[in-house]
């Protein structure tokens, strides 16, 4: 068993008065891929977004309990929000290229952290694009708008853009939900490489994907943690009946 990277302790989450996550505790190991899955509206997106505090963009939201990354409470007043979001990068369910060139998309994060030298930026961009297996596709057209890429390429660009932040944790919220099988395979492949350097939390877009890629998995239902364990346990021999029902397709 490796070290714990993220420790979630008794997390409850509220949109106004509506509770989306109930008393949720989970240890997320370092350098592993952790799948969080369950039916729609189970609080999975909310959970991911609470790890980089992105939910704070929505007014009238509130988190209770503690989230520790490397034993440091991310809600502590000393924590810089922008630093946190750089340590915990996020890829969304639809590709979200910003309306600028491929290069500027890639350099967006590094520039924010104060890197201005073109050569340094170019190095980061190239390295990150290679890690996301996109460099070959785009190296000769870095100045074209990111929106001109195909959907799968856009999503890999978004991953590369997160990698350029040099994060510690990568959150992926159903990153393949709109993609064709080939693009999906490419992303899954690169995740196996990436976990050597990063801690990855992913909401897979279906159970098969969860089974293919994850080391550990957690099943969520209506904001509650139902079951957690290694991927083989959860996807092959779940102990909880609700998990089994969901995996065999009885509901969801």
């Amino acid at each position: 068993m490796t070290d714990t990277k993220i420790k979630i302790e008794n997390l409850s989450f509220f949109y106004g008065k509506k509770q989306a996550i109930n008393d949720f505790s989970l240890d997320i190991p370092k350098n592993r891929i952790m799948s969080v899955f369950g039916p729609a509206k189970s609080g999975i997106t909310t959970l991911l977004r609470s790890l980089n505090r992105l939910y704070e963009l929505i007014p009238d939201t509130r988190a209770e309990g503690r989230i520790l990354i490397d034993n440091e409470d991310i809600h502590a007043p000393s924590v810089s929000l922008t630093q946190l979001r750089r340590r915990v990068g996020m890829v969304f369910d639809v590709p979200t290229p910003l309306p600028m060139s491929i290069f500027d998309n890639m350099a967006y994060g590094p520039r924010l952290s104060g890197i201005k030298r073109r050569s340094e930026l170019e190095g980061i961009v190239e390295q990150s694009l290679k890690m996301a297996a996109l460099w070959e596709d785009v190296c000769d057209r870095l100045d074209t708008p990111a929106a001109s890429l195909s959907g799968g390429q856009q999503q890999r660009l978004c991953m590369a853009r997160v990698l350029a932040l040099k994060p510690e944790v990568i959150l992926l919220d159903r990153p393949c939900s709109g993609l064709d099988p080939i693009s999906t395979a490419k992303i899954e492949e690169s995740l196996q490489e990436l976990k050597k350097q990063f801690t990855i939390v992913i909401a897979p877009h279906n159970i098969q994907q969860g089974g293919r890629i994850s080391d550990r998995a957690v099943f969520m239902l209506s904001g509650n943690l139902i079951e957690e364990g290694t991927a083989e346990e959860i996807f092959a021999n779940p102990t909880d009946k609700r998990t089994a029902d969901y995996i065999t397709g009885r509901f969801g």
Partner: peptide, 11 residues
Amino acid sequence: SYRETSFSLGA
């Protein structure tokens, strides 16, 4: 989504 993305990249 533009705003969300920008914030998530640490802006």
